[in-house]
Computed example of a mutant assay.
Amino acid sequence: MEGLIKTSTELPDMLVLEILSKLSVKSLTRFRCVCKPWSSSFETPHFITKHHQNNLKNNNLNLLLKRCHGGTPDDIHYFSQLSTEKYQNFRVKHNIHLPFFENFLHGPFVHGPCNGILCLADLGSIVHNVALWNPSTREFKILPQSTVQRPPGLLDYTSFNSLGFGYDSQTADFKFVRFVTNYFEENLDEGLMADWNNQVELYSLKGDSWKEISFPEVDGFASILFNNYVNGFIYCQAVAIDQLILSFDMVNEKFSISPLPEFGGSLEQYYLELLDFNGLLGAIFYPREGTDKSFDLWVMNGSWTKQFSVESVLGVERPLGFWKNGELFLESSDQELVLIDPSIQELRNLGIHAYQKTMHITGYVESLVPLNGRSEHKECIIRRPVGGESN
C-alpha cells in the first residue's frame, strides 16, 4: 500500500497525522527521518495549524526569561529557558545567547508570542535591527533593512519605536509595525534648528518587505513587558493623551483609538501595561512608587470590567506576565523572580535572579510555523544547558 505508514494494522493516514499532531516539536523533528511523506506532511498548513491548536487546547506553555545577570544593566542580556515539567517548575534548563543583539543596550525588546513566533527588536537609533525567532524549531530570521524612503535633510539619526508584532488571518501573514521619527535641519533666519516628522512602517513576512502606511492623528508606544497583540489587533498606549489606547488592525492596516478603563487613578501615579488575557484585551495598573504594590487587572469584553485586584504585596517591583490559572509572575525588590496566586494572595520565590528591571518573561506554545530564515546554529546562537548550576 502507499501512504504515510505501513503497519500490520494499517492505520489510516489521517489517524496517524492526528496522533502525530499531538507530539512535541522535538519528537516531530526526529520523526522527519522515518519517511518522506511524514516529513512533507509536517510542513503543510493544515498540520501546522492542527499541531498549534492542540498545544493551545492543552495549555502546553513554555517559558523564556530574558535577563541580565551581570553587575550593571549594560552587561550582556540573554534568554533562559525555564522548565515547566511537574516537580521541576521554573528551573533554568538552558541559557541562550543571541550574538545579533549583544552589542545593543539592554538587548532586544520582545514582541509576541504570536502563533509561537517571537519578534525581537533592539533600541538602536540609527539602524533598527529586528528578527523573528521560532524557539521551538530553532529557526531565526533577521529582517532586511527598511527600503522606505526618508525625507531629505536628515540629521545623523532616526529613532524607532516598536509598536508590535501580529498575524493577518486573511492573508496568513505575520506583520511587524513601528513608528519612525526622522530628525532634520530647518534653515531659518535665526540659524539652523532641528525639526522632525513621523512615519509608520510595516514589515510583511510573506513579502519579506517593508512599506510605509498612513500615519494616525496620535502616535503610541508599546509595552515592553507583555504581549500587546490580541485577536488580530496590536494595542499600545497613546502618547501625550492620558486616557486613550491606540490600536492597529492587522488585516485592514488601519489605526483607531479607544478609551482606557476608569480605574480611579492617573497615569502620572500608575504604570499601565496592555496584554492578552485569555484571548481578551487586558490592562494592568500598578503604582509607580513604593515596594508595597497593588495590581488591578481590567478586561475588555464589550466594556471594561475589573477582573481582579491584588492588594498590598510587600517587596515587589513590577508584574512580568501571567502563568496558568491566573498566577502572576513578579519581579521582587531583591531582583528575584516570584509567582503569586491572586486567589489566595500566596507569594512563591522561584530563586531566579537578574539585574534590576532587566527581566522579561514570555510564555508561548510550540509551533511549526516556518520563517524562511536560518537555523540557530547558522546564526551562531548558543544554547548552554545549565544542569546543576544556580539560577
Score class of each variant (00 low, 15 high):
residue 98 L to V: 03
residue 227 N to E: 07
residue 184 F to M: 09
residue 376 E to S: 12
residue 166 G to W: 00
residue 27 S to Y: 07
residue 155 L to D: 11
residue 121 A to R: 00
residue 360 H to P: 01
residue 383 R to V: 07
residue 183 Y to L: 07
residue 354 A to Y: 00
residue 39 S to H: 08
residue 174 F to R: 01
residue 249 D to K: 00
residue 158 T to D: 03
residue 141 K to I: 05
residue 98 L to R: 00
residue 10 E to K: 12
residue 356 Q to M: 11
residue 30 R to L: 13
residue 114 C to V: 14
residue 377 H to C: 13
residue 186 E to C: 10
residue 5 I to G: 10
residue 87 Y to K: 13
residue 256 S to E: 05
residue 66 K to V: 02
residue 349 N to R: 12
residue 331 E to N: 09
residue 387 G to F: 04
residue 218 V to D: 14
residue 173 D to M: 03
residue 77 H to K: 01
residue 257 I to K: 03
residue 15 L to Y: 06
residue 200 V to Y: 02
residue 377 H to W: 07
residue 346 E to F: 09
residue 262 E to N: 13
residue 238 A to L: 04
residue 157 Y to S: 10
residue 306 K to C: 06
residue 211 K to H: 04
residue 374 R to A: 13
residue 235 Y to I: 04
residue 58 N to I: 07
residue 332 S to V: 14
residue 188 L to A: 08
residue 14 M to Q: 15
residue 114 C to P: 04
residue 120 L to G: 03
residue 119 C to H: 01
residue 228 N to W: 01
residue 136 S to G: 10
residue 100 F to A: 09
residue 236 C to F: 06
residue 292 D to S: 12
residue 379 E to K: 06
residue 85 E to P: 01
residue 158 T to Y: 00
residue 197 N to C: 15
residue 53 Q to K: 14
residue 144 P to M: 02
residue 277 F to Y: 15
residue 131 A to V: 00
residue 149 Q to H: 05
residue 183 Y to H: 12
residue 111 H to I: 02
residue 340 I to G: 05
residue 47 F to S: 11
residue 276 D to R: 01
residue 350 L to Q: 08
residue 186 E to G: 10
residue 24 S to P: 08
residue 98 L to C: 02
residue 200 V to H: 03
residue 32 R to C: 13
residue 74 D to P: 03
residue 386 V to M: 07
residue 335 Q to P: 08
residue 90 F to K: 02
residue 354 A to P: 05
residue 113 P to W: 01
residue 52 H to V: 08
residue 18 E to D: 15
residue 285 F to C: 03
